[in-house]
Design a binder for these strands. Structure first.
Length: 503
RNA sequence: GGGCGUGUAGCUCAGAGGUAGAGCAGCGGACUUUUAAUCCGUUGGCCGAAGGUUCGAUCCCUUCCACGCUCACCA
C-alpha cells in the first residue's frame, strides 16, 4: 500500500521520499485515532530477563510484555518475524494474522517500519530453528520512526556521522554502548575507591576570573550582567588547594576541563579529569595511590589487569617502575647511555652533550632542549606503565622542589601506551615562592607566552594562611578509558566530541 | 595552522572527459516457523559547494566547506 497523505510537515532540509512517506503513516494512524507516540507502555521483562528465564516462561505460558526498536523484519505472507532490540539485546517476535487482533495486525502490517519502537505481549516459545521468540497476542506501535536506519549488515561506518549522530551509532553499532558502559563503570569504581578511603568529592567553579592550574590557552566567555570576561577553567587545581587550606585533607573532583588547543586523537577541547589532593603526603605517596587505584578499577570494571591497545599489550598488575626524567633519556635514547645532562648547564654545554644523539628542534634554555629530546625520543617508547619522576622545576610552577635540588620538582607523570595518563606532585605551599613563580609566569606572558599563568593574588593569600604539606594528582579519564577499552581515538570514548557545525 | 587523503541514492560502496551504477533499505506483488529469508517487478541522485578549462565536467584545474590520518601545540 502506497501511502501519500499530504499532511506530514517537512521540517528538515534533508527530508526525502522515505521520510515523507513515514510521516504520512503517522498521520494516517492519527486519522484512525491511534497515537503514533504513546505516553506509557510498561514492559514486564527485558530481553535479558526473558532469555534468562525462558524455560520457566515457556512452561508456564506466562504472558510477557516486551518493547524495543524493530531492527529486523521478515514477512512471510500472513505472518511475520521481527527482531526487537532493547538496551540489553535483541529478541524475536512472531506475528500471525489469525492470532493478533485485526487492528493490531493492520498497525503492524501497514504502518510499521524498520526502526519503529514497538511493544508486544505474548507467550515465549522456541521456533523450530531454535530461536527464542515471543508469540505475539498483541502488538502496539509505541513510537513512529520516520528516518531510515543505516543498512543492516554494513551498519554505520562513516566516522563523521557516527560522531555527529551518536544516537544512530548507538542504535546500529553494538560495542559503542559497551564502551560507554565501561567508562561509566570505571568512573564509578574510581569514586567508590576514593570515597572508601575518606576522600571528599567536591565541585569547584568551571568559570574562572583568573586562569590557572595548568599551562594552556583558555576559552574566553563573558558575563553580561556583570560585564566581565570569564575563562572556562583549564584545571580545578587552585580551587582544590584553597580547600586544603580550609582544612579538608582528602579531596577530589571528577569533571570537565577546557583547553583552547589543537584537536587530535588524544585531545578534545573539553575533557574529563580526576584531580585529587591528600594532605601530609608527598609525590611518592600519590604515586602509590595512583597505581593501586588504577589497578583496582581495572580489576573491578574489567576483571583483569592485562589489556590490549592496538597491537600493544600491557599489564597493570606488576608494580609500575619509577624512572627519573634524566635516567629515562639515558635508558631509552640510543647513544645517550652515558650522557650527563644537567638542568643547570648553560645551553651550549647541553647542546654539546646532546650532539652525539640528538639535535633539538630549537635553541633555548637547557631544560627546554632536554624536554624536547624527551618528548620526541622517549615518550613514544613508554608503552608499559612507567612513572617518570624528577621533572624540571622550571616547567612545574605549582610543584615543590626537592629539598636538596631546587631545580628539580617532586613531580611524576604516569605513561601507558606512549600517552601521559596521570601527572602529580608535591604541592608548592610556600606563599612567597609561589608568588615568585607566578611573577615569572606573568613576565613570560608579557613576553608573549600565552599559555603562562596569570597572577592569582587570592590564591597567594590563601597560601599565606598556611596549606598543609600535600600532594596532588590529575588523571585523564578519557585516556584511561581509551587504553582500557582499546579505543584508538579520544572521540571513541566521548559521547559527543566537538565537531564543526554541519550546516 | 602545515602535509596527505576522503566526500557519488537513506546506508555500504563501484565507476568514468560523452550526461549515473550495484547491494541493502524503500515501494508494488507472492509466501502462516523465518534468520543477511526467498522470488517477481520497481521508485530514489544539483556525484560536498562555487568558479574555471572544454563542444561537453560528476571525472581535469582553482578556491572554499566538512571529515579522517599525521605534524605542530597540548593532557
Amino acid at each position: 500500500m502506497n501511502i501519500f497523505i499530504d499532511g506530514g510537515t517537512a521540517m528538515l532540509r534533508d527530508h526525502n521520499e522515505i521520510i515523507r512517506n513515514r510521516y504520512a503513516k503517522a498521520d494516517a494512524l492519527r486519522a484512525e485515532r491511534i497515537n503514533p507516540y504513546v505516553n506509557r507502555w510498561l514492559p514486564t521483562h527485558s530481553s535479558q530477563q526473558i532469555r534468562a528465564c525462558q524455560e520457566q516462561l515457556a512452561a508456564d505460558k506466562t504472558r510477557v510484555r516486551f518493547a524495543g526498536r524493530i531492527v529486523g523484519m521478515r514477512h512471510m505472507g500472513k505472518a511475520s518475524f521481527i527482531h526487537l532490540k532493547d538496551e540489553k539485546g535483541r529478541l524475536q517476535a512472531y506475528l500471525k494474522k489469525d492470532i493478533l487482533p485485526e487492528a493490531d495486525y493492520k498497525v503492524f502490517k501497514e504502518y510499521s517500519d524498520l526502526g519503529d519502537i514497538a511493544g508486544v505481549e505474548g507467550e515465549v516459545f522456541v521456533t523450530r530453528t531454535g530461536e527464542l521468540t515471543i508469540q505475539a497476542l498483541s502488538y502496539t506501535l509505541l513510537s513512529k520512526s520516520v528516518r531510515p536506519l543505516p543498512e543492516k549488515w554494513h551498519g554505520l561506518r562513516d566516522v563523521e556521522t557516527r560522531f555527529r549522530q551518536r544516537y544512530v551509532d548507538l542504535i546500529v553499532n553494538d560495542g559503542v554502548r559497551e564502551t560507554f558502559v565501561l567508562r561509566s563503570r570505571l568512573v564509578s569504581s574510581m569514586r567508590n575507591y576514593l570515597a572508601g578511603r575518606g576522600y571528599l568529592e567536591v565541585e569547584t567553579p568551571m568559570m574562572h576570573t583568573v586562569c590557572g592550574g595548568a599551562t594552556a590557552r583558555p576559552f574566553k566567555t563573558h558575563h553580561n550582567a556583570l560585564n566581565m570576561d570569564l575563562f572556562l577553567r583549564i584545571a580545578p587545581e587552585l580551587y582544590l588547594k584553597r580547600l586544603m587550606v580550609g582544612g579538608i585533607e582528602k579531596i577530589f573532583e571528577i569533571n570537565r576541563n577546557f583547553r583552547n588547543e589543537g584537536i587530535s586523537t588524544k585531545h578534545n577541547p573539553e575533557f574529563t579529569m580526576l584531580e585529587l589532593y591528600t594532605a601530609y603526603w608527598d609525590y611518592r605517596d600519590t604515586m602509590a595511590l595512583t597505581e593501586y587505584m588504577i589497578r583496582h578499577i581495572a580489576r573491578e570494571s574489567f576483571g583483569r589487569t592485562e589489556f590490549e591497545f592496538g597491537d600493544i599489550r600491557f599489564d597493570l598488575g606488576p608494580a609500575f617502575p619509577r624512572v627519573t626524567y634524566l635516567d629515562a633519556i639515558r635508558r631509552w635514547v640510543p647513544g645517550a647511555a652515558d650522557a650527563d645532562l644537567r638542568w643547570d648547564d648553560p645551553p651550549e654545554t647541553t647542546l654539546e652533550k646532546m650532539r652525539p644523539f640528538h639535535t633539538p628542534e630549537f635553541r633555548g634554555p637547557s631544560y627546554q632542549m632536554i624536554i624536547d629530546l624527551f618528548e620526541h625520543r622517549v615518550e613514544p617508547q613508554l608503552i608499559f606503565p612507567v612513572y617518570i619522576t624528577e621533572f624540571p622545576k622550571a616547567v612545574s610552577p605549582l610543584a615543590k622542589s626537592k629539598p636538596d635540588e631546587p631545580l628539580v620538582a617532586e613531580r611524576f607523570e604516569l605513561f601507558i601506551c606512549g600517552m601521559e595518563i596521570a601527572n602529580g606532585y608535591s604541592e608548592l605551599n610556600d606563599p612567597r615562592e609561589q608568588y615568585e613563580c607566578f611573577r615569572q609566569q606573568v613576565e613570560a606572558k608579557a613576553r608573549g607566552d600565552d599559555e603562562a599563568h596569570d597572577m592569582d593574588e587570592d590564591y597567594i593569600r590563601a597560601l599565606e594562611y598556611g596549606m598543609p604539606p600535600a600532594s596532588g594528582l590529575g588523571v585523564g579519564i578519557d585516556r584511561v578509558t581509551m587504553i582500557l577499552t582499546n579505543s584508538p581515538s579520544i572521540r571513541d570514548v566521548i559521547l559527543f566530541p566537538l565537531m564543526k557545525p554541519e550546516w
